[in-house]
């Protein structure tokens, strides 16, 4: 039975990674990357590697989205003139 869960999670990670590559808008890609991070953590847990799963969760759930979204925000504010950015 434990092979079935590996296959299921592997398929999900493959699909999510493809979706992350196909998505071109950075803000939406950050969303897909966040979901990919959670699925990768599940994959590492299923493959009996909890330390790596913990690292993926710690970094991928809150830190990476925050960094990406702050960059997206900075680039968007640079594009727009001053008045509605405040």
């Amino acid at each position: 039975m434990s092979d079935a869960v590996i296959v299921v999670v592997l398929l999900l990670v493959a699909a999510c990674a493809t979706a992350a590559v196909v998505q071109r808008d950075p803000a939406r890609q950050a969303l897909v990357l966040s979901v990919l991070g959670v699925l990768l953590a599940a994959l590492f847990t299923v493959l009996q590697a909890p330390d790596v799963g913990l690292s993926q969760l710690a970094v991928g759930s809150a830190l990476t989205p925050l960094l990406i979204m702050l960059c997206v925000r900075k680039i968007r504010r640079r594009g727009r003139p001053k008045e509605d950015a405040r």
Partner: peptide, 11 residues
């Protein structure tokens, strides 16, 4: 492994 779920529930 419960620590993994704990961290996910937190973050």
């Amino acid at each position: 492994y419960v620590d993994l779920a704990l961290l996910l529930a937190l973050l």
